[in-house]
Design a protein around this nucleic acid. Sequence first.
DNA 1: GTTCCGATGCTT
DNA 2: AGCATCGGAACG
Length: 171
Amino acid sequence: MLGKHLVAGDRAGIIVETEAYLGSHDKASHARFGRTRRNAVMFGHGGVSYVYLCYGMYDLFNVVTGRDGDPQAVLIRALEPVRGIGGDVAVTRGPGKLTRALGITRSHSGLDMTGASTPVYIAPGRRISRTDISVGPRVGVDYAGDWASAPLRFWIAGHPSVSRGARSKAA
DNA sequence: GTTCCGATGCTT
DNA sequence: AGCATCGGAACG
C-alpha cells in the first residue's frame, strides 16, 4: 500500500508508513481475543476500512486485508500531504494525526476502499521500488511478547513524513 | 538528544 | 487496569 493515495473528500495524502497485523495468532492484533463489537469488520472481507478509537483521543485508520474470517489489517501510520491539508509534513506524521488532518473518524469504519464512491478510499499513486522500503518492529506493542519485535512495520526509506516513534526504532 | 507524564474514553 | 498516541516538560 506504500505509495498509494488515501483520499477523504477533497483531502488526500500518499501512504508512506504502514504496519501489518497478521491475524488472531498475532499477539499485537486487536483480533487476538477473537471477534468483538470493536473489531468485527476485521473478520469480514478485505478492502474495507477499520477505524477505532485509540487512547480515548485518536481515531486510527486501517485497511482490512484478509479473506472472510481471517482478521488481517494494515495500519496507516504516516502520509505525505498531497491535497487539502497544506504543506506541513508534521500534520500527517503519525497514525493519530493523519486521521485528524483528513477528517477521518470511526464513522468511516466499514467502508469499501477499492472504489471512489465512498467518502474515504484508496487510490493509485506512485510506484515504490522494493529497495526504497525499510522494515522494522511495530510501534507501541511492547505488551505483545515475541510479536513485539516482529519486522512488520514498513516505510519509505528516509521519507520526511515517517513517524517519530518509527524513526527511533529503525532496523 | 533522551525519558517521563498526563490527557481522555473505550475495551476487556 | 490497559491501551496500535501525542505534545510538552525535564533532563543530560
